[in-house]
Amino acid sequence: MILDKHLTFVKGTDTPAAETRAVCLVQGDLTGTTDGMGPYDGLFLMVTATDTIASLTVTLEHGDAQAGPFTALATYPAKTGLKPGDVVVKAPVPFSAKNWLRVKLSSAAKVNAFLAVGVDKGVVVND
């Protein structure tokens, strides 16, 4: 898997928050209406716990501008009894995603959340 700082929503070392920063997919107009990702993009949403978390639901949101407004694109079922290193979400980004994505958590928690290509391979950090 390839990690790129421009596709990272939040790192486990950041202050816990229920909403992450917005990440741009750089498609067409950065602030205009978009048609969504094409099937060739192949990005995956990865969210892993970096602390013990009792329960967590993750929602991937999308919008046409960095400041929003954002709407839910996909919601992933609650995971319970999470320990550091546990995978919370590992799922492809839906093709209908708009230019800007962010992650919303059911509660403030310490997680790693990022977009990646090739999630079943080794990890390459591209900072």
Rank of each mutant, 00 (worst) to 15 (best):
S106P: 01
M46C: 07
K79Q: 13
V47K: 11
G122W: 05
A67V: 08
K79G: 01
V103E: 09
T20E: 09
L115T: 13
V111H: 07
A22P: 07
T34W: 02
P77K: 03
L82S: 01
A97N: 09
K110W: 04
K110M: 07
V58P: 03
S96F: 01
A18D: 14
H6W: 14
P69S: 03
M1T: 15
L25K: 10
L105W: 01
T52R: 15
T33L: 13
V58I: 12
P77L: 01
E61R: 12
K104Q: 14
V111P: 00
F114S: 11
A17R: 14
N112R: 11
L30D: 11
A91E: 15
P92W: 10
L3C: 02
N99D: 12
C24G: 14
A54H: 05
L7H: 15
T48W: 02
V23P: 03
F95I: 11
M1Y: 14
Q66N: 09
T31N: 12
T52S: 09
A108T: 05
E19Y: 10
Y40K: 10
A49K: 04
D41E: 14
N112V: 09
A17M: 04
V93I: 11
I53R: 13
F9Q: 12
M1W: 11
G81C: 03
V123F: 11
M37L: 15
V87Q: 07
T50K: 15
L115Q: 11
T8I: 14
A49H: 09
T31P: 00
